[in-house]
Design a protein around this nucleic acid. Sequence first.
DNA 1: TATTGTTATACTCTATAACTATA
DNA 2: TATAGTTATAGAGTATAACAATA
Lengths: 174, 174
Amino acid sequence: MAEQAQYEELVRQFSAFGAVKREMGRILPSDCPAGSAAVLTLLGRHGEMRMSRLAELLSVDMSVTSRHVTHLAERGWIQRSPDPADKRSRILHLTPAGEAQLDELSERTTRLLAERLSDWSDDDVGRLIQLMARLRASFDDCRAAPPRPPVRPPAPPEAEQRTAPTTRTPASAT
Amino acid sequence: MAEQAQYEELVRQFSAFGAVKREMGRILPSDCPAGSAAVLTLLGRHGEMRMSRLAELLSVDMSVTSRHVTHLAERGWIQRSPDPADKRSRILHLTPAGEAQLDELSERTTRLLAERLSDWSDDDVGRLIQLMARLRASFDDCRAAPPRPPVRPPAPPEAEQRTAPTTRTPASAT
DNA sequence: TATTGTTATACTCTATAACTATA
DNA sequence: TATAGTTATAGAGTATAACAATA
């Protein structure tokens, strides 16, 4: 449990992180912006999947995911095959061109990071990865769980998917 | 010096961090979005300053800064006084209402973080702050310094101001 | 009736460029 | 001619809502 001043400093770092994000964005190919790159990365890492799963991994609304996916499909980097098990769904997977694009992205970002973080030790990079992963987990958990009042275990990990404020726009049944 | 796989994982964490950022953004008052909040925070922390200095602290172009500042000034949270030393400039400073707003922001973000990070130790929060600060410094340094080529020069490092790609739009003398 | 995905619309943040008023 | 700041415009990312097709 940290103090207020520490939290304020953390918020400041969050805000300042935008500069890093933008710098990374600048090296991307003009027809493959950050959102598209994230989709390619996830498909490369997790293999084929459906829209809904992708939206969840991206932590954005499915409508957003849909736009990114359309962008990629138009460029031939991914393909949307019909899902035999559910005709409403489509299975997304990388094409060979998409894998090539992914390689290109990986090379560019790796080169940039190798340059910028040239004086970082392996361990320090690892620590940053771990802390950022934990940070996200701390926020994700609370997204599924109700904001339990302070004092005790934040979330019984049994709930399968309570709410998920993103990933799905409520259909507003008329 | 880390390996490629580690860099790729880091990039993934950068991308995923957006979800945290958006979650933080959701608790802000509707008339004080993240950009405005960042300005208030910096003015609170560093005291009065000029536009150009603020833009540098924000790491964004001055045109962007100008819009945020206008937004805040319209709400009476900051004031733009003429700079006696340079009539082109204006000195920005928080008003009492601005300080109140800043307190409100601070309380909201602190509350959210205290909830989400309830199981983080003080030290872990401190480590994350430190690593993120260092990350930004690593990117900032390279913005001012010529990108030391690992093998071959991607760009001639003699240019006089490859520095500060943001903070200033070149005036394009006509 | 509920779910999967798409599209239309709106808002925030950002950068580039052009413009002003000083220096 | 160069600098401080403003404004107009455009692009990326996101969310909400409404809709179509299928469960």
